[in-house]
Design a protein around this nucleic acid. Structure first.
Length: 603
DNA sequence: GAGTTTGAAACT
DNA sequence: CAGTTTCAAACTC
């Protein structure tokens, strides 16, 4: 992974060729301002990368707004420098137009998003990534992870009820990462007066800020930094996506925090679960304090149903109802998700609480000793799915697969009993299911064949009373969204555009599932998260091992899937053959990884 | 809301 | 590794 320092080196090399820029003063300024630096870098190169990279299918989705927003930033990035040369100049006019639009659009776009209800998670990822990029490019500014975490509050903005203000706020911060005009923490957008007071007085000023953002989004040929939300914490991100369906205005705050806090930290402390819990409580409390108070007053089932009906699924509002497991086994959804049980849970004799931290951690260790990936996300999503399967991608979450596969006997993988179905992914060769009719993709791969199979599924499922089987998400966008949020029968149709990380991701994903998030580090984290509680010193070794695993030829077994359509390798001939892209396909191998000895902690 | 079904997790 | 039991979620009535 490219460290910020590395980036600095790359960037500054061409800069130093210029006379003026050799001066100490310039260098100093340069070191302070990533904007200036980037501006002077090999823009032509950057541009070529941007220009000739074919837009992913995502642009065809209804969520084009967000994508376009980003692409616009890219465009701006290139043209922000007056000294630009070549093709960049051609975009000047466009830039002017877009800039004008940009000044008006944020709220509008966000409004659209809130209406379509499908892009929120995507946006979070996109923004997250953008911030990651920013973070990388910001190099010496704040090269620590804390910055990224703090930046997460920026993302929250997009889910705030005050989107336009928030957007501006974000821009402000982007333009000046040091002064942090909107350093109001995680809820800058909630207080319009605050952001207004910091807001530039004219749209010109705002425009300048926009430029700041653009500049910092320049180097797209660089491997994008790891997008957080991995492993356990995929859940968090995925949650955020789901929560989004319900109450977008407040769900980001905590959820994103969870995802970032945990996954952006290279080495999680042993008591990470505590933080998760705190974050989670923040997630839970914020909404409740706002509006959802009634949740606490309902029965568990009601709660669950309510949340499901609201489209949350196994969201941050995940509540268990354990009676005998003490919430210390994987039966417990909370425990399995790596979070503490909280008040809304209806568990009995619950030990999955901060006061029993030791017990929880010990149990986790024990479980992990049995299965190192016990707490890893069950569904592995290939973030390359957007581009890798081309047209097929528009029909199914092709690359996402359940890690271990299901073992369904009677449900035909058509009910949420089936983990694959529940996660919104098709069954795979790993599944031992019988009579698989998974609407997201059958074990034999038949459901990916095309129309007739879809019709087939429709016929098969439509006859069943009470169980509305959703067709596989129909847009590529869904590939990027957490499919784990399974379509409830009540809102199946709405799901066609929703869902991510995904996860990818938890996500998971989540988050995680963004096509540009597949940096190897992510894979590493994905794997290593299963042992988050292991000693810190082991971590480095573990990660190394895992990295080796990932690099090992054995990992290519993911390409051996009988269903080549589903588990296709990344397009190596693609113009984007950056490492992070290649790694996208590796995620698929998780299913085989547990058998590798190197995953066991070194004792 | 109670009862049943289901399949993952845990156990032997 | 296979078979069985336990468990809690999903589902049905």
């Amino acid at each position: 992974m490219d460290t910020p320092q590395k980036t600095v080196t790359q960037i500054e090399t061409p800069v130093s060729k210029l006379k003026v820029e050799n001066s100490p003063v310039f260098n100093y300024i340069n070191s302070l301002s990533p904007i200036t630096t980037v501006k002077s870098t090999s823009t032509a190169q950057t541009f070529s990368s941007l220009t000739f990279t074919s837009p992913p299918p995502v642009f065809t989705t209804p969520h084009v707004v967000a994508s376009h927003k980003e692409s616009r930033f890219r465009s701006h990035s290139n043209s922000s420098d007056p000294s630009k040369v070549g093709p960049e100049a051609s975009t000047l006019e466009e830039e002017e137009e877009e800039e004008a639009l940009l000044e008006k659009e944020p709220s509008q776009n966000l409004k659209n998003e809130s209406v379509t209800n499908d892009g929120a998670c995507e946006d979070v990822e996109t923004d997250l990534q953008r911030m990651c990029d920013d973070n990388v490019k910001r190099k010496s500014d704040t090269p620590d992870w804390e910055t990224l975490i703090s930046n997460s509050s920026d993302m929250l903005i997009y889910g705030s009820p005050n989107d336009s203000e928030a957007f501006r706020c974000f821009l402000q911060r982007s333009s000046d990462s040091k002064t942090r005009l909107c350093s109001g923490g995680s809820k800058p957008a909630l207080d319009p007066s605050v952001s207004k007071s910091n807001e530039p007085e004219s749209s010109d000023a705002l425009s300048i800020l926009h430029r700041g953002v653009r500049r910092r989004c320049l180097d797209f040929e660089m491997p994008r930094c790891v997008v957080p939300s991995i492993g356990l914490h995929l859940n968090a991100i995925a949650m955020s996506c789901k929560d989004n369906n319900v109450s977008k205005q407040h769900s980001y705050t905590g959820n994103v925090k969870v995802g970032l806090q945990s996954s952006t930290t290279p080495a999680l402390p042993s008591n990470d679960i505590v933080r998760e819990s705190e974050a989670r409580e923040a997630v839970e409390e914020a909404p409740m304090s706002l509006a959802l108070v009634e949740v606490n007053q309902s029965s568990p089932k009601k709660k669950r149903r309510k949340s499901e009906q609201a489209g949350e699924g196994e969201s941050s509002c995940k509540r268990c109802n354990c009676k005998k497991s003490k919430c210390l086994k994987l039966y417990c959804e909370c425990f399995a998700a790596g979070v503490y049980c909280i008040e809304p849970c209806s568990c009995v004799d619950c030990f999955n609480k901060p006061i029993h931290e030791d017990t929880v951690l010990a149990t986790r260790k024990q479980i992990e000793s049995r299965n190192p990936l016990a707490f890893a996300p069950k569904v592995i999503r290939n973030s390359d799915s957007i581009t890798e399967v081309g047209e097929d991608a528009s029909k199914t979450p092709a690359s996402a697969r359940h890690k271990r596969g299901c073992n369904c006997k009677k449900s035909n993988c058509l009910k949420k009993y089936c983990e694959c179905y529940q996660s919104g992914v098709g069954c795979s060769i790993n599944c031992r299911c019988e009579g698989c009719k998974n609407a997201f993709g059958r074990k034999d791969g038949s459901s990916f064949a095309g129309m007739d199979t879809e019709q087939d599924q429709e016929n098969e499922t439509s006859g069943k009373s009470g169980t509305a089987i959703p067709l596989p998400p129909s847009t590529p966008m869904s590939l990027r969204q957490p499919l784990s949020q399974l379509p409830n029968s009540s809102n199946n149709m709405l799901l066609s555009q929703q869902s991510q990380q995904h996860l990818h991701g938890a996500s998971g994903s989540s988050l995680y599932n963004n096509s540009q998030s597949s940096f190897r580090k992510q894979d590493m984290s994905l794997l290593s998260h299963s042992r988050i509680d292991t000693i810190a010193e082991e971590r480095a070794e573990d990660i190394e091992d895992i990295e080796n695993l990932i690099q090992s030829p054995v990992t290519n077994i993911n390409a051996v899937s009988p269903n080549s359509k589903r588990v296709s390798l990344p397009h190596m001939e693609s113009t984007e053959t950056t490492p992070w892209r290649r790694n996208g396909g590796r995620k698929l191998l998780l299913s085989s990884i547990p058998t590798f000895p190197s995953l066991t902690p070194h004792h």
